[in-house]
Design a protein around this nucleic acid. Structure first.
Length: 879
RNA sequence: GGGCGAAUAGCUCAGUUGGUUAGAGCACGUGGCUUACAUCCACGGGGUCACAGGUUCGAGUCCUGUUUCGCCCACCA
């Protein structure tokens, strides 16, 4: 093994093993009725996506779960795939077209879609390749794309079923309109953001009078679409306006005055302009009072012919101009700064325009009810649990979902309209919903039909992902075996977009929950708290980290710094944790492997030293704890436990202590500890562990080897206690050496008086431990002496866990300095002792605290006292 | 406006049901190239657990309030 390089080199290892796993089919899950399935569906990344740290975190977690469960004997299936990401992908391809000086309209719908597919062929696989570099053990033979034939069929099926059930309808409503993408958006796609705007107080003249009323608005350009003025129902200030006619500034349109309880007399002036085509509340009022709707904008956010003199202006330019004009006419009373929340397009950040238009909607309440129930009843649980409240709040206030999008890339709505002729009847206006293009209009027989131009919201395919990827609507064997899935691992941003809707879809179309547990991890940020984003230029690219430090380093670091469900703050430096740890494991293997040549397996008959018993106890305890941590999604605990065990217990102590021993004696233990450690580490660090595993001449890949179980026969708390005494002693002696500046090569003798409080420290059983102590702390002789013998001359006194240890320092020791050192020690202990005694003297404490706590205090006081006595004795002898 | 989360060492963060003297990594200081590893080893310094009250024999941990930061939700023009 000496030919292994000194420094672990991930590059030489990762590609090799990934290819090996893939060609052996190790990732693919096959149904096995005798074993339990464990299924995860990947949150499908956008096909335009490139791997960022959020993906790295999300997919590392999934891979850890899948690899762990696979080793643990489950039929572990991780279904991968990508999302067609309607708007995002269309934007990307349109940008590429723009470079050629073309728009999508120059190509036409069909050619454009062809172009998107071509783009997808070329670039759509990027993120999949990147996931492979991360080590993701997805079953790639099942890779799905939301625009695949099967998944498209599922989308169509769902649309039709919901339509037939009356849960899909079409109608004119105010929706969120993105003037840049030129499509409707759902409420979730138009997140509100606080903006510092203004409240403009505008005078609306009254007909036939010199009077005016003042109305406050944040969007003066929309006044061009006003069709009424509203006042509060019990507002005596304005009662007199009822029946009067108000004149719309600029356009001089006549507006009537209505009463509506929506109006809050306390806000602004207590009078509201009513613009039914550009505001949801005004729309409602318009319906109630039978007001006309006047849409004043074009789809691109410029003003249309209804805007009169402002036609053709951009909406914000129009705002400026209208304010100037109002000012000129003396109709702008005042302007106040005003912060308010404004919707923004989640794809391009453009300010949303609420706009009246004809769209398709899903009625959500009936779907939400069962989805609320399953979370209430604990059939679907969130980790951390606080997310279930957020989920329930949203579900209980759910609003209908606008699902039509005015773009080309996506699932076209399976609806046709009769564009018929003179023979058309009223019913011909009804949409014709079907799986295929109807031959003719069922009402008038016309063959002149056209399909709805719109496509469906991307999330209308994603919400089916847990079952559409398994073959639905076909009743596949796989679907029955692997559904419901087990765990969904995702980021909080898509709780409403995706998670909530999947639960609704699963219940509606499969009659069952889509997954049992939802693990919601944090958001990746950079140190300093900002969100990591391209626009801020603070991206840490996971692929670069993989190139530099290796995928295992990336994975381990991410896990160990991420507490369950909390946000992650990254800096490049943090990946050194994983790189250094990987290197440590590598070098431990380099040390161990040559020692294993003549090994025999660990068996109960092997003679064991106390240090052996100790490391085996630690190992089995670690197996138990790591398994526990994983099942609680405490990946940082799992990582830290392994780090602490492998580095600070196994390497720092055990490996050092065994350096003096014969290979055949320790080989079984070394092999046991190394192997089990590698198995435990494998889900987090798949590549490195496989590379070392393969050097152990295994029969099969580590990824299909069995997950270790703790062997309780090796649990040995007593040994752990006495070894920790021994370690403390070692540390204290080393400390003493550095305090006294004992030069290298000066050997010291120590004497350990045998007292009752001394943990069972058997020199013979601990022989190799003492050998190590001699070497590492520069000790030449260790002697156990009868307790009564007292302190040898010229020695320093240590009190380790209340037991004295005398270190011979003749010639080195400075009497005064040693005295003051001991005095300091005594003082420290005395302070602690006093505090403990105060408690014990308190009757309240003794009577109310649990017995074992009181007992602990008593014990502790006694030991402290003994330690102090020993130190005082030592001090007396020095004087 | 409502809700959620966070505040612990110079930095980034752990801290399970309240229980003796609050931990880690990085950074820092000192000493070491000890033939697995300088991506390393040994030792060390460093904290009024945001603030103010309260509950309790006992609070980093539970309760109330305050401050600061972050996030989510919301149709007051």
């Amino acid at each position: 093994m000496s030919d292994l390089p000194k420094v672990y080199s991930p590059k030489d290892v990762e590609e090799k093993w990934y290819r090996d796993w893939e060609t052996k089919g190790a990732f693919s899950a096959k149904r096995d009725p005798h074993r339990t399935p464990y299924t995860i569906v990947i949150p499908p990344p956008n096909v335009t996506g490139i791997l960022h740290m959020g993906h790295a975190l999300n997919n590392t977690i999934q891979d850890i779960l899948i690899r762990w469960k696979r080793m643990d004997g489950k039929v572990a299936l991780w279904v991968p795939g990508t999302d067609h990401a309607g708007i995002a992908t269309q934007n990307v391809v349109e940008k590429a077209l723009a470079k050629e000086g073309k728009s999508r309209h120059d190509l036409g719908r069909e050619k454009f879609i062809e172009r998107v597919w071509k783009w997808r062929e070329e670039y759509g696989g990027t993120i999949i390749r990147q996931l492979k570099r991360l080590g993701a053990s997805c079953d790639w033979t099942r890779t799905r794309f939301t625009m695949d034939e099967g998944l498209s069929k599922a989308v169509q099926e769902v649309f039709i079923r919901l339509y037939e059930k009356g849960l899909i309808y079409r109608g004119h409503y105010i929706i969120n309109w993105c003037p840049r993408c030129q499509t409707a958006l759902s409420d979730e796609e138009a997140p509100h953001q606080d903006l510092q705007g203004h409240l403009y107080y505008i005078r609306y003249p009254m007909e036939g009078s010199k009077d005016h009323i003042v109305i406050a608005t944040t969007r003066p350009e929309t006044l061009l679409g006003d069709t009424a003025v509203a006042i509060g129902p019990k507002d005596d200030r304005y009662r007199k306006l009822l029946g009067k006619t108000i004149l719309l500034p600029v356009l001089k349109r006549k507006l009537k005055v209505v009463e509506d309880e929506f109006v809050d007399p306390a806000f602004g002036t207590g009078v509201v302009k009513v613009t039914p085509a550009h505001d949801p509340n005004d729309f409602m009022m318009g319906q109630k009072h039978n007001l006309p709707s006047v849409n004043v904008m074009n789809p691109d956010g410029t003003m249309n012919e209804e805007a009169g003199p402002y036609q053709g202006l951009d909406r914000f330019e129009c705002r400026r101009r209208i304010l100037v004009d109002l000012e000129k006419e003396g109709l702008l009373e005042k302007t106040e700064p005003h912060a308010h929340a404004v919707g923004h397009c989640y794809r391009c950040r453009t300010i949303i325009e609420p706009r009246l238009s004809l769209q398709w909607f899903v009625k959500m309440k009936p779907l939400a009810e069962p989805a609320i129930r399953v979370v209430r009843e604990g059939k679907v649980t969130f980790i951390p649990s606080r997310w279930s409240k957020i989920y329930l709040d949203w579900m209980e206030n759910i609003r209908d979902w606008c699902i039509s999008r005015q773009i080309w890339w996506g699932h076209r709505i399976p609806v046709w309209y009769c564009v018929g002729t003179d023979h058309c009847k009223i019913e011909c206006k009804e949409p014709i919903v079907g799986r295929t293009r109807p031959e003719k209009c069922p009402h008038c027989g016309s063959k002149n039909l056209r399909q709805d131009e719109d496509v469906l919201d991307t999330w209308f395919s994603s919400w089916l992902w847990p079952f559409s990827t398994l073959g639905w609507p076909e009743e596949d064997e796989d679907l029955r075996y692997f559904y419901p899935t087990d765990t969904l691992v995702t980021a909080p941003e898509i709780l409403f977009f995706w998670v909530a809707r999947m639960i609704m879809a699963g219940l509606e179309f499969r009659g069952n929950i889509p997954f049992r547990e939802v693990y919601i991890h944090g958001t990746v940020r950079v140190e300093g708290g900002k969100k990591m984003s391209k626009s801020l230029g603070n991206i840490i690219d996971p692929i670069e980290i993989i190139e530099k430090f290796g995928a295992d380093a990336l994975r381990f670091s991410l896990m160990v710094i991420t507490a369950t469900g909390s946000d992650v703050y990254l800096s490049e430096q943090k990946f050194l944790i994983g790189r250094n740890f990987a290197n440590k494991i590598w070098n431990a293997a380099r040390l161990i492997l040559p020692k294993l040549e003549k090994r025999q397996p660990l068996s109960p008959h092997l003679p064991l030293d106390d240090t052996d018993r100790w490391i085996l106890s630690r190992l089995n305890r670690t197996i138990e704890e790591v398994t526990e941590a994983l099942s609680e999604y405490s990946f940082n605990d799992a990582g830290s436990l392994l780090y602490e065990f492998f580095w600070h217990q196994f390497c720092d102590w055990y490996l050092e202590m065994t350096k003096a021993r014969k290979n055949e004696e320790i080989a079984p233990i070394l092999e046991e500890v190394l192997k089990k450690s590698l198995l435990l580490l494998h889900p987090i660090m798949p590549f490195l562990t496989e590379e070392i595993w393969q050097n152990l001449s295994p029969k099969e890949s580590i990824m299909v080897s069995e997950w270790p179980k703790p062997d309780k026969a090796y649990f040995n708390p007593e040994i752990e206690r006495s070894l920790s005494f021994f370690m403390k002693m070692t540390t204290e002696i080393r400390n003493l050496r550095s305090q006294w500046n004992v030069p290298e090569g000066t050997n010291l003798d120590i004497e350990i008086p045998l007292t009752k409080t001394l943990p069972s420290l058997d020199e013979k059983k601990l022989y190799y431990g003492f050998e190590f102590l001699k070497k590492s702390a520069g000790i030449s002789k260790v002697a156990f002496t009868p307790g009564k013998k007292g302190k040898p001359a010229g020695s320093a006194t240590l009190v380790v866990s209340h037991s004295p240890v005398f270190v011979q320092l003749k010639g080195v020791i400075n009497l005064e300095a040693e005295k003051s050192r001991i005095l300091r020690e005594i003082e420290e202990r005395r302070a602690h002792w006093q505090k403990t005694m105060e408690r014990l003297k308190d009757n309240n404490f003794v009577s109310r605290a649990p017995e074992e706590v009181v007992l602990k205090h008593r014990e502790s006081a006694k030991l402290l006292e003994e330690g102090i006595v020993k130190l005082e004795e030592a001090l007396a002898e020095l004087s």
